[in-house]
Design a protein around this nucleic acid. Structure first.
Lengths: 231, 231
DNA sequence: CGGCGTTGTATCGTCTATGGCACAACGCAA
DNA sequence: TTGCGTTGTGCCATAGACGATACAACGCCG
């Protein structure tokens, strides 16, 4: 169907949400040294920017040290708290961006056992442990490519020795080289592929080429199931 | 600082974005069998709902089979494509929700080597391979708890045998039991903790209690660095 | 002491998203 | 043929977000 997932991040606190727009504003204040110049350089109204800063400080605490009068008329500067806030915003945004970018393999299956948030799902590829919402049996299981680690069969950890609850033996059927990252397609059942995102360094180290036998492992806590329309 | 990350998902296509609101609308149409009743039950205006459906179909193709006149005056029904769209929307949303929920450990460090998207970051815990944006040396590395797998030292995969590029030996210092999931805190350096999200099943299987020696591994492709303010 | 560029504050106009409403078109059933 | 509940369409009202403008307060500096 070819849709592109997109997202908006916000950092919430006390009912106020710091959005991308706010992030830009704070960054511009940091850059320009004054609330006025920041609004100007962003093409926004000073009045609104000022009100917004007050609003944000109401919820997040002191963010901008503002002073009026004095040499040059005054100016503004970000507090350490504001910088910290920007940093966590960027971190969160980077995480989300990672999710939006990396592709995933989706398997449909049926919940055959459940224990709180965790369920065992029977799929065409075998049984998968995944985080599952309550009250659903027909589910789609999504496995993000960056969550799948590939191991040489001889050195793959035994199920009892690792916290990776899902383990599938398979054979590499395709390697899609990027510059430094590569998508590896692993056949775990005839006609059933799992894709893993690994570094080209790993490709070379493990000697991954079509035909190579590998063991793919991924954690139950990194695997999510969602209810599937029973149409 | 105690902020709560939040997000809005959308599925984009041809410049139109299918939002949560649209998802609700389509679901209501599916439920109520008519566009009219759907708008009613959602407390929205029919006019706007109808126009929105047309807008969406402009971008996504046929979504709602609508018929007017006839027994009961007509009615509407979702197409298979619409159902598929809802399913992928839910999957994407579940992925994002997972990211927003699971906590992460953040390490600050310096890029000491770089190869395209991938960089080696020197941190207090050691060297970490992570996906890194271009043009930054002072970075914060974030490691999501659900991306960290714990292994028994004896059975931990050798660096050469796995695609998990990051590997740290440490000692369990805390286990925060949930119902079926648990957060395990691992000290990889004195005073430097890494948290992993694992199932309680794994806790028992690996015998994880404070003092247990473990090897924590996580993939470079699941680890992201972001530029840090050099204040 | 006046100038200057800033911060604060109030008010107004605009744009956009949305609900409210009116009315035509439709097609089956009584 | 009439009634009915739906879809389709146009127009207006409302609310919120935001820019534009104006003006007071501030405090160093020449």
């Amino acid at each position: 169907m070819d849709v592109s997932p997109d997202f908006d991040v916000q950092l919430g606190r006390d009912g106020v949400a710091l959005t991308v727009r706010d992030r830009e504003l704070l960054a511009a204040i940091d850059e320009d040294g004054s609330l006025n110049a920041a609004a100007e350089s962003l093409g926004r109204s000073y009045a609104h920017a000022q009100r917004r800063v007050v609003e944000l400080e109401d919820a997040f605490g002191s963010l901008v040290d503002r002073s009026r009068g004095g040499g040059g008329g005054g100016g503004s500067e970000l507090t350490d708290r504001a910088r910290e806030l920007l940093a966590t915003f960027d971190r969160v945004r980077a995480e989300f961006a990672g999710v939006a970018e990396t592709d995933e393999t989706v398997l449909s299956g049926r919940v055959i056992d459940r224990d709180g948030e965790l369920a065992t799902v029977e799929t065409a590829a075998g049984r998968i442990r995944a985080v599952t919402p309550p009250d659903c049996t027909e589910v789609g299981v999504t496995i993000r490519a960056d969550a799948v680690t590939l191991n040489r069969p001889a050195e793959a950890p035994e199920p009892g020795g690792t916290s990776a609850r899902n383990r599938f033996e398979g054979e590499v059927v395709g390697v899609d080289h990027g510059e430094t990252l590569a998508r590896v397609t692993v056949a775990v059942e005839p006609g059933l592929h799992l894709t893993a995102l690994v570094t080209v360094e790993s490709i070379e180290r493990l000697g991954l080429t079509p035909g190579t036998a590998v063991v793919a492992t991924f954690k139950a806590t990194a695997t999510r199931a969602v209810a599937r329309a029973e149409s």
